[in-house]
């Protein structure tokens, strides 16, 4: 049943969808940015706590599909303790993994996030996976109150 989808919907994704990590409002957040994917209606609010250029805490609220929820859940886990430039670097790698050609992707470099590599085969779902990262990008650049992927 749904064997063809095992690359896309790995168990880790179901797990993060059922029990999203860091899923709460952060009252004392330094950055708060909303991400919205109007095509699917995925909507999330990302909260960051910063110490200098270091991300000391990350959390989110919102609702979306399993791919977007797992993606933002995993992202909040992995960026904690990273510097802004390290997080930006991860964003670039993640972007490359989900949209780029296979040979260019170094899955080891992004650890756990590799479970989302499967979206590459589903162009309609790539934006579900990248919404979280575009939102993080906007939060780090502190440019906008809300961002949208279309």
């Amino acid at each position: 049943m749904f064997d063809d989808l095992r690359d896309l919907y790995q168990e880790v994704i179901f797990d993060h969808n059922r029990n999203p990590r860091n899923f709460h409002v952060m009252e004392d957040a330094d950055r708060k940015v909303e991400g919205f994917n109007p095509l699917c209606g995925d909507r999330l609010t990302l909260f960051l706590k910063l110490d200098g250029d270091k991300i000391t805490d990350a959390s989110f609220q919102g609702s979306g599909c399993a791919i977007s929820t797992a993606s933002v859940s995993l992202m909040t886990e992995i960026v904690k303790g990273k510097t802004e430039s390290e997080a930006e670097d991860l964003f670039q790698k993640f972007h490359q993994m989900t949209t780029g050609k296979e040979e260019e992707v170094n899955l080891e470099a992004i650890g756990k996030l590799a479970v989302l590599a499967g979206v590459r085969e589903y162009p309609a779902r790539v934006k579900c996976a990248t919404l979280a990262w575009h939102t993080l990008d906007a939060a780090l650049k502190n440019e906008q109150e809300s961002i949208s992927t279309e």
Binding site: F2, D4, L5, C40, D42, A66, I67, R125
Partner: peptide, 14 residues
Amino acid sequence: KIHPHDIGTMLDSL
């Protein structure tokens, strides 16, 4: 608790 896009992708695989 299941987003329509997940439903769409799941059904598409069938």
